[in-house]
Design a protein around this nucleic acid. Structure first.
Lengths: 188, 188, 188, 188
DNA sequence: GATGAATGAGTATTCATTCAT
DNA sequence: AATGAATGAATACTCATTCAT
């Protein structure tokens, strides 16, 4: 069966995994994850066939969640700078509020365990986010830069800011804004 | 002294580790690294006390090497944009030419195995590079952004470009230049 | 509960350990012990956390078993010489009939792996045996010798005899009796 | 060559081994022994072919030393009780004064590494000691007990006392004497 | 489905011994 | 002879995965 009974349990495992991997790295044992999720050793495998499978799904779902949060409530009628600012604030705010998911994602991104298919799937869930980002450069100086490179740069700048927001939450908003200003200068 | 410890062998191990880890991740076995380095299983441990030790030294030395390459031949008399461009070109060029070291570094950066001391040591070796980068923003719009955040952003943009340079070497120079232009817009 | 931990299996491991250690010494591998016990390599560690732990428990349980055998069926109404003779015969008889346990115990006794706590625990299980031994000297010439030293001497004489009983089983009873006579002369 | 140049170094290794093994057990590494002896790793093997060889020689020489000390200055003209008492006092005194050698010997005695040949050799070096002990029983109640068993019993009683002498040196003499009295009662 | 014991392949590290210097 | 680096077999213990209950 494609999806076993309890979706709650599935989510619990995924969230437990994020927490444990944030703390212990990808070497975290499935036993530790199961324990954190409040289930038994063996039950984990009725929800995920292998550890690799669990990791891949964690990757995809975390990325999707991030993308969904980022585009929530975008004022589609406002001008592009406002839309981008809204997106940016959502994105960095969510990421900074989930340091564990973020830290885990950082490990997953560079891991061999994540298949090309998973990477592709994650990209799909970010389509809408990417589309809005794209609008920002279509008439600007970056119009000839490959789309992927441009997205990667936006990502990179955001990431740098998020690190600072997590480390020094009191000034989180300031960091977010500084980064947005830099991003805006870059594309316009 | 009988058969003194050879610096060559130490380097060979470090380079073998970079190659193997790039291919297999941090889970790469010490045996595989030793074999790639052309030494015996046990000899690895006469040069590095533990695998963690090896990983930390690999991290420090790779970062140092990168920093040293980046600042080689900087035209200190030229204007700041020229200096930055030179730095940028060195940096991205070297990184793109050593995809294995780069890939390995990406894993090490997010790993728990790397101690805060190692991270600090790596920072030290990048002082000069950071200093030059700093000159670029002292009178510009980013003058009030924290130094570390600014450096992280530069890093992030470079990284994004390097990925592209590695994936599509034919257009490497173009990507490098586009990224530099974006960076320059960001800081000026 | 799924497949509860089996006490039989625990005992099987302990007995396998006694057999293997008797043959190969304390350097015996956990793999060899597991194989002899008919379980897998890893299962040994669901019953004992470490090899040291296994060794300590083996020590304690073997000593307890010996003590229990020694005092079985003591004729508490008979005079003290009869009681001692019964104890002595039980004790030497059991020890001589389990040369493997005995040989293993000899190694364990001098090993660093055995903790003071284990030694203390073993002493407790021999309380009753020691009490009867004690009765034998309370009015005799050894009345002022420290209790522990007296017990150690009894032990030592018995041990010497047991070695002979094992080596030359045909005359086992004779050796046992000679040793008892010597012991009796010593204390009366 | 049967005996390499420096006999001093050979002895130094043997004594270092006794000290280290007393502290760390038979698992003590040859490297640790070499270091304690003040020589290099590899040099140990110009004096002893293998670790087993070292252990066997340590066994033989320690036993010989003990035997030699035990019979030093025996008053051959005195009556047998005096002779035995002298022997006993020498023996226990020496053993109690070298707790490391004693402890090491205890481990060696039960070890598989010691060959039957070594055990035989050790017995030879104790011939004279055994001869004197023998005199003590030839007309007594133990006259029909096998010689080896009798010796083992003497040994065992002495051993028990030595333990106490080491643990509580202040009363060493008392323990030695108590044990002798017990021994004398046993044989006469 | 849930549980946790059973499995056994896998791995860092150690150490007796050898050998180049 | 002396040194200590090099060797590689050996081993306790781990952990993803399976399976009996």
């Amino acid at each position: 069966m494609a999806r076993p009974k309890s979706d709650d349990k599935r989510s619990a495992i995924l969230e437990a995994a994020a927490r444990i991997i944030a703390a212990e790295g990808l070497g975290a044992t499935t036993a530790a994850i199961a324990k954190e999720a409040g289930i038994s050793n063996g039950s984990l495998f009725t929800y995920f066939n292998t550890k690799t499978d669990l990791l891949n799904q964690l990757y995809i779902e975390t990325k999707s969640e991030m993308a969904a949060e980022a585009i929530a409530g975008i004022p589609t009628d406002s001008d592009i700078r406002d839309q981008l600012l809204h997106l940016w604030t959502n994105w960095l705010g969510w990421s900074a509020s989930c340091p564990e998911k973020r830290r885990t994602l950082a490990q997953l991104i560079v891991s061999d365990e994540i298949t090309p298919e998973s990477r592709e799937a994650a990209k799909h869930s970010m389509t809408e986010m990417a589309r809005i980002l794209e609008c920002g450069r279509e008439n600007g100086p970056m119009r000839d830069v490959p789309r992927g490179l441009f997205i990667a740069m936006a990502n990179a700048i955001a990431d740098a800011a998020i690190d600072y927001m997590i480390t020094d939450p009191a000034n989180a908003e300031k960091y977010s804004m500084s980064a947005f200003d830099a991003f805006w200068r870059m594309i316009s």
